[in-house]
Design a protein around this nucleic acid. Structure first.
Lengths: 361, 361
DNA sequence: CCGCACCATCGAAACGATGCGATTCGCATC
DNA sequence: GATGCGAATCGCATCGTTTCGATGGTGCGG
C-alpha cells in the first residue's frame, strides 16, 4: 500500500492491494491471479496481471507468503568451519554436488551456513534467525551439537551426513570403519608389518606442524571426531603396532610434512595408510622428495575415493559413494518436507586397488 | 498460539503469545525480552525467558520478524549453470571465498541460487520466491539478463562480478582486455608470430568435441559472453593472424583436446595463448603427450592466476585479484544494505611471468 | 418461468511478530 | 497523603499475503 507519498519521495513497495485497487477487484481476487488453486476467470486474471505490470508489481512478497503458509522454501546447509574451506575439500564438494542436484529438483533454495566453534554464539544466532524449512549437516563436526536444541524446539527437520549421531537427526552414514578394516587387511595380506598412519588434523582450523609420532591406538577417547576416531580404530584392529602422526593442517603440504616424519624415523614403515586421499597425495610427495618409488619402495593408501584433479596416479583407496550420499540426504529432505519420516541409512564403501600399493620390498 | 489441540495431536508452533500468557505479561513485553532496544526489567526478562524455556519456545519466528522489518538478512548468490560446476571452477571459488568472508562479517545468510537458461522460468520463479535483501551475480552469464526486471521491480539491490553490464547493477569489473593485451604484447616481444588461441566453450554446459580452427577475429559479435569476447579481441589486436579453437567443454580434457588440434595442424603455433588457466594446463598436457618441452618447444600461457592444486609448474599468466573482487562485491552489498550507493569499480590485473613461456625455438 | 447449483468474487480473519503511543507503576519529594 | 516523573508495561494497528466462508449472479434443467 502506498502510504508515504510525501514530496521526499519515500515510497514503500507496491503491494497486492495496490494492484487490486487498480484492477478494481478485491485483494483476495488479486491473490487468486497468482495461485494455481482457486477459480478465477481468465479475463479477470489478465486484467489483474495488466494492472500489476502497470504499477510495477513483481509478484507476491515472499516473506508474507511464508508467514501465511508456514514455509519458506529454504533448506539450510550447514558446514563446519568456513564456507571457503568446505568447498576446497573434495569430499564435501562431491557430497554437495549430489545434495544440490536433489534439492534443485525439490525447487527449494539452498542457504549456506557455516558454523565454527569459536564464533559459536554468533553463527548459532544467525541460524536461529533464518527461515529454513529443514537443515542438512553437510560435514561432520562436533560443534553442531550445540545447534540441535533450538532446531528441535522449532521443529525443523534435520538431516546429517556422517553425523551428528543425535536424536532427531536422520542420518546418511558411511560404513567407513569396516572399509578401513578391509583396506588394512589387504595391506597385511600383502605382507606389510611396519605401518604408518597419517591422520587428519583433529581441529578443523588447524594450521601448524604435525603432531608427535605415537602409537596408533593412543588415547582414542580424546578424539572427538567420530569419523577420524573410527577409521583409526579400524587400522588399530589390524595393525596394533602401527605408528601414527597427526597432520598439522588441512592443506596438501601438511600431509607431506607429516608423512615425512614417518619416513624419516629410525625404522620407517613399508606402508603409509593415510586417512584420506589428500593426505595420501601428500605422502606420495614426501616419498618422491626422498627418492622412494611408489609402490616399489613404499605403499601409500588413501580413503574416500575423491576426485583429485591433476593426479596422474590411481590411488589405492576405499571409495565412498560421495555423490550418492548427497543425493540420499536430499531425498530425505524431500521426504521430511512432505511430512514423511525417512529412516537413517548406512551406505557401503568399496576397496579399490590402484597403482600405489604392493608388497613390501 | 496453540489452536489445534485435537486428539490427533496436530500442534501448530509455540508463539510469543503463548510465552506471554504463561509469564503473565503482554506480548509486547514478551517481545522486549528478545530485543536489544527498549526497556525491560531484568526480573521480567528472566521470567519471560523461563516461561519460554518451559514451553519450548525457541525465539521469535524469523519470517514474522522479516515481514515487520522488511528485511530477511539473506543475500542471494547467483551462479550460472549449476552450483556444482560453479564450485569446481577455481575462479568462481576464489571469488566466492572473498565474498563469503565479507558476507560473514555482515551477519547475513548466503543463499545459493543457480540459473541456467534451459530451465529459465523455473529458476527465475525460484529466485522470485526467495526473500533476499540483495543479490550478487557471482559469475558472468548472459542468462542473468532475464532476471533483472523482476529484481528491479522489487527494488532488490544487485551487485555483479564482471557483469551484467546493465542499469541498476553495481559492478566489480576486471580490466581483462588490457591484461590480455599486455600478455600478448610480451609474447610478441619474445618473438612469437605463429600463435594459437584456446578459448573457453561459449555455452556454459558444453560437452563435446572442440570447434573448428578459425581465424582469431572470426565473428566476434556472435560471442555473447563479454568476458570471452573481450579477451579474444585483445589477442586479435596484437596477433591478427592467430588461429583459434573453442574447447568443447569445461573439463581439463577438453582443453587438452582443443590444444591438440592446434598442435597437430600443418604449421603449429610456437605459442598457445589459453584463455584461462585450466585450459592452459590442458595445453601443457597436450604438449607433453606430443613430446614437446615447455617452454623450449612451445610457450603456453593462461589467464586468471587461479590457484591450481597439484600443478608443479608456474604458469605464465595474468593474475586477477580473485579473492579481492569477492571482497569488494561483499563490501558493496554491505553499503547497499546500509542504504548507500557504492559506485562500480574496475580492478586491475597483472602480468605474471612463469616458467611456461620463452622465445620460439 | 422458477428454482437450484455452481462459480467468480468478496470481506474478514488469520499468520507471528514489532513498535508506537498510551497507560500504569514505583518511588521520591514536598 | 498528594504530586510529579521516568521507567516499565500494555493495547492495538500493522507488515502483505492467503484462505475460509459468505454472497451474488449466471445459466440450465424441469
Amino acid at each position: 500500500m502506498v502510504k508515504n507519498m510525501t514530496t521526499s519521495s519515500v515510497r514503500t513497495s507496491v503491494t497486492l492491494a495496490d494492484v487490486a485497487a487498480l484492477a478494481k477487484v478485491s485483494t483476495s481476487t488479486a491473490s487468486l491471479a497468482y495461485r494455481r488453486t482457486g477459480s478465477i476467470t481468465e479475463r479477470t486474471r489478465a486484467r489483474i496481471l495488466a494492472a500489476a505490470a502497470e504499477i510495477g508489481y513483481a509478484g507476491p512478497n515472499p516473506t508474507a507468503r511464508s508467514l501465511k503458509s508456514g514455509r519458506s522454501g529454504i533448506v539450510g546447509i550447514i558446514v563446519a568451519g568456513t564456507v571457503r574451506r568446505a568447498f576446497q575439500n573434495p569430499v564435501a564438494m562431491a557430497t554437495m554436488s549430489g545434495l544440490s542436484e536433489a534439492l534443485d529438483d525439490l525447487d527449494v533454495g539452498q542457504l549456506l551456513l557455516s558454523h565454527r566453534s569459536e564464533s559459536g554464539d554468533r553463527s548459532a544466532r544467525l541460524l536461529d534467525g533464518m527461515p529454513v524449512d529443514a537443515v542438512v549437516f553437510l560435514t561432520r563436526g562436533e560443534e553442531f551439537d550445540g545447534l540441535l536444541p533450538s532446531m528441535r524446539a522449532r521443529r525443523i527437520p534435520m538431516v546429517g551426513v556422517e553425523g551428528p549421531h543425535e536424536e532427531g537427526v536422520t542420518l546418511v552414514d558411511i560404513d567407513d570403519a569396516s572399509g578401513m578394516a578391509v583396506l588394512a587387511g589387504r595391506m597385511r595380506d600383502l605382507g606389510h608389518r611396519r605401518v604408518g598412519v597419517v591422520m587428519r588434523a583433529t581441529r578443523i582450523d588447524a594450521n601448524g606442524p604435525p603432531g608427535p609420532l605415537s602409537s596408533v591406538d593412543a588415547d582414542f577417547d580424546s578424539i572427538s571426531n567420530r569419523t577420524i576416531r573410527e577409521r583409526l580404530r579400524a587400522v588399530a584392529s589390524v595393525f596394533p603396532d602401527a605408528v601414527r602422526v597427526e597432520a598439522g593442517g588441512r592443506e596438501l603440504d601438511s600431509g607431506e610434512i607429516a608423512a615425512g616424519r614417518l619416513l624419516d624415523a629410525a625404522s620407517p614403515p613399508t606402508a603409509i595408510l593415510a586417512q584420506n586421499d589428500m593426505l595420501a597425495v601428500g605422502a606420495l610427495r614426501a616419498a618422491e622428495a626422498r627418492g622412494l618409488q611408489v609402490p616399489r619402495d613404499l605403499t601409500v593408501t588413501g580413503f574416500d575415493g575423491a576426485d583429485i584433479p591433476l593426479l596422474d596416479r590411481r590411488l589405492t583407496t576405499v571409495e565412498q559413494p560421495l555423490h550418492d550420499r548427497g543425493l540420499q540426504a536430499g531425498r530425505m529432505v524431500g521426504e521430511l518436507l512432505a511430512g514423511g519420516s525417512p529412516s537413517s541409512i548406512v551406505l557401503p564403501v568399496a576397496f579399490r586397488e590402484g597403482d600405489t600399493s604392493g608388497p613390501p620390498r
